[in-house]
Design a protein around this nucleic acid. Structure first.
Length: 728
RNA sequence: GGUCGGCUAGCUCAGCUGGUUAGAGCGCUUGGUUCACAUCCAAGAGGUCGAGGGUUCGAGUCCCCCGCCGACCACCA
């Protein structure tokens, strides 16, 4: 569903919210100091001011004190001295104790202003005395409020000076006026010194103009009554953040919040729904009124200002559902559970959705906020149109598919860490989709589309079948747990590894010889493989929705669409640790044989070999068949006496190959393994000889290390014997 | 000024409450094309975990300090 904030229904929600705040006394209009953009000629909120560092100058001005002496003040903005209405010092500052209460005579304008004591003054900065310009500085405004100082405005709304008392400066822009007034002050002997000064200057988020704080009548929302509940829900973890550290950021902002300036002097936006009559009754109405609520006067004018865009956005979770009407949508879909967003709108939007929702509906709009990372350009810069560093996601979709693009987003976005864009990573998920496609093609051949799931007789399961079913269960547990904790990266990793390497590379290769048999063993293998693939597709569906649906339809399944299919359940009874260990050993033997054959000549497809092993799986025909299949061996019958031999030894298992090979290769592998074992033994012995370790480490850890040492020693003995005899 | 995050293989990144000798993808080297997939398979090389201290039987993981990189907050005139 789409909703535009200027839609008629949405406007009605915005007005309703305004009126409710208004009736509760949470909205007021009044002159206060605001961040004023002289270019846009509008007030903007604290969040829309961008501070950038600048190298300026700090001017020290001498103000003569009546009755004798001078007091020096430091300022980066000398032109504002025309609007000074006081000088402030810290109440604890001994240097100025006897001056508090006296007056100074401002240079140039020759106006008398008081010296006051206020705790906002930093004793250590500058001279410890500060000129107070309540009309054009936020801190000074607050000092002025506390000390009862006059507010003088010296700026026009376009940022030019409005100083009739100094005709030579009147009408100049700040940048032009500053050097002039400095000269004038110097001429009058009021300029004591100038120092280089590095500080931050506020700029308009929209247009970049330097912000001029000034006092102006604006509309405000009182924040204290709203922030209280919004703080409580986070403190009590009803509202949770992922990663958790954002909770503190949210709380800090919410705790230090000031009243929210919601009026803007812009052309486009929601108009403030307040009308004023000829008798000056200003009242908020949900719909344009025909007469004043207070006096019945019919000459009404609507406030010319519009609302801060985030005012309407803050209502999003419920205004989109028809609030304040009690609609079916609102009842059905509010509240939601998860909000996923970037950190830059945590305060602008997320925090505000929280307090408006708590206020109007008394319920959180969502319980979990995921703050994902930001995608940066490959060189680490921000992506932006002006830098030309952006990437069009639709192009990525065209090139690699929506599934691959989405999988990449899910993998990298949700760790909360910023990520440099890399097209190759998206491509790797395209290849993954291709892998799934091919595996499906292998299994679907010969099965009619739309078939129901193939029943499996558990009595007919071979070890490999049980193994992959157990692995599937483990992966199901992993993915389910990861999703519950919003950890999509490890979930995708697990599925990728399982589907590609365990299922396709190992299991499908293992069952290939069985598949042509349409009866018992072949049927069982295909049924198990289809079941594993079908389940894997369901696990993967939230991440790669399109290809999983397409493939799911092509293999036996129950139900109409994968998106409606139930979430897979793990079955831990299928996870047999002993079998897992047997398979791991078998695969290790496979790797060792492949490694040797890699360095051998000639490479015949079916290499005659014999295997000796006390291991359970390798003792039975099925296990030996697996080894033969994966390592491409011919295990039947004794080796002819004239064939050269080469032994591959992994643990208790020995595979003797009839192969022409440089006998140094296996010797080298075994030698390297022996050295590794010897290192391990030394490491373990040192550790176990340390009484601190055996005394202080948990018993289980010590026992495990002892077992490892024994194992390593046995392995080393076997290897030594082999190398001593001379392999081959 | 304060706070937070990052620094792990050539590149991009995982590594939960400290416990086998640190992992993946890409890239690189070597070998492989009848039988789902060369968009593939197999075998390999590659890391003093940013520097330095400390705690601990044991530190990529906890503490301190420093260095870069990136953010955020702030009423330093």
């Amino acid at each position: 569903r789409n909703r535009f904030t200027m839609d008629r229904e949405y406007v009605a929600s915005v007005n309703a919210a305004f009126v409710r705040f208004w009736k509760a006394g949470l909205i007021y209009r009044g002159p206060r100091i605001v961040n004023w953009c002289p270019r846009d000629q509008s007030a903007i909120s604290d969040l829309e001011v961008v501070f950038t560092e600048a190298d300026d100058q700090l001017y020290y001005l001498d103000y003569p004190v009546e009755g004798g002496g001078v007091i020096s003040v430091a300022t980066a903005r000398p032109e504002t001295m025309v609007g000074d209405t006081g000088v402030a010092v810290n109440p604890g500052d001994e240097r100025y104790r006897e001056l508090v209460g006296k007056t100074v005579l401002l240079p140039l304008v020759h106006r008398r202003v008081p010296i006051v004591a206020d705790q906002a003054v930093d004793i250590g900065f500058g001279t410890g005395a500060v000129k107070v310009t309540p009309g054009h500085d936020t801190t000074d405004y607050e000092i002025g409020e506390r000390q009862g100082l006059e507010v003088r405005n010296i700026l026009h709304l376009d940022g030019r000076l409005d100083v009739a008392e100094l005709p030579e400066l009147n009408g100049l822009k700040v940048a032009q006026a500053r050097p002039r007034i400095v000269e004038m002050l110097r001429a009058e002997g009021a300029l004591q010194k100038v120092e280089p000064y590095h500080h931050s200057v506020g700029h308009c988020d929209r247009c970049g103009a330097v912000i001029e704080p000034l006092v102006s009548s604006q509309w405000w929302v009182k924040m204290k009554p709203l922030s209280g509940p919004a703080i409580a829900v986070a403190e009590e973890d009803e509202l949770r953040f992922h990663p958790e550290r954002w909770k503190e950021q949210y709380l800090r902002w919410m705790r230090n919040i000031r009243d929210w300036c919601i009026s803007r002097q812009l052309w486009l936006g929601h108009r403030i729904p307040v009308w004023t009559c000829a008798n000056s009754h200003a009242v908020a109405y949900e719909k344009a009124p025909s007469a004043c609520e207070e006096c019945g006067d019919r000459t009404l004018t609507q406030d010319p200002d519009v609302l801060d865009t985030w005012f309407s956005s803050s209502l999003w979770p419920f205004a989109t559902l028809g609030w304040p009407n009690e609609t079916e949508d609102l009842a059905g879909f509010y509240p939601t559970q998860v909000l996923d967003t970037a950190r830059d709108i945590l305060y602008l939007w997320v925090a505000r959705m929280v307090f408006t929702s708590l206020y109007f509906l008394d319920k959180l709009p969502f319980s979990d906020v995921i703050i994902h990372g930001t995608v940066l350009a490959p060189d680490g810069r921000r992506m932006s149109k002006s830098l030309g560093t952006g990437v069009d996601p639709l192009q990525m979709v065209d090139r690699y598919g929506a599934d691959a693009t989405r999988a990449w987003c899910a993998y990298f976005g949700t760790s909360g860490q910023d990520i440099r864009f890399s097209e190759e990573k998206i491509k790797s998920y395209q290849l993954f989709a291709n892998k799934l496609w091919n595996a499906t093609r292998l299994l679907a051949s010969g099965i009619a589309e739309g078939s129901p799931p193939l029943p499996v007789d558990e009595a007919l399961l071979e070890p490999a079948d049980s193994w992959i079913l157990g692995r599937l269960s483990a992966v199901t547990r992993l993915v389910t747990r990861c999703f519950a904790g919003f950890e999509f990266g490890p979930a995708i990793d697990g599925l990728y590894e399982f589907a590609w390497h365990e299922f396709a590379d190992d299991y499908l290769e293992l069952i290939k010889p069985r598949l042509p048999d349409g009866g018992g063993s072949g049927y069982t293998a295909r049924a198990v493989a289809v079941h594993v693939l079908e389940t894997t597709l369901r696990l993967l569906h939230p991440i790669m929705p399109f290809v999983t649906e397409e493939l799911w339809q092509r293999i036996p399944h129950a139900g109409e669409s994968i998106v409606l299919a139930p979430w897979p359940l793990a079955d831990e009874r299928l996870e047999d640790p002993a079998l897992l260990e047997e398979m791991a050993h078998l695969l290790e033997v496979v790797r060792a044989v492949r490694s040797l054959r890699h360095a051998s000549e000639p490479r015949t497809r079916r290499q005659p070999a014999q295997v000796q092993s006390p291991r359970r799986l390798l003792s039975e025909p099925a296990g030996r068949q697996y080894l033969a299949t994966l390592a491409q061996l011919e295990l039947n019958g004794p080796l002819a006496p004239e064939v050269p031999r080469q032994a591959v030894v992994v643990g208790e298992t020995t595979v003797t190959l009839g192969i022409r090979s440089d006998s140094g290769v296996e010797r080298q592998r075994l030698g390297a393994e022996l050295r590794k074992k010897e290192q391990e033994i030394e490491f373990m012995e040192t550790k176990l000889k340390n009484p601190d370790f055996t005394g202080r480490a948990p018993q289980a850890v010590v026992e495990r290390e002892q077992a490892r040492l024994l194992e390593a020693k046995e392995a080393a003995l076997r290897l030594q014997a082999l190398l001593g005899e001379g392999a081959g």
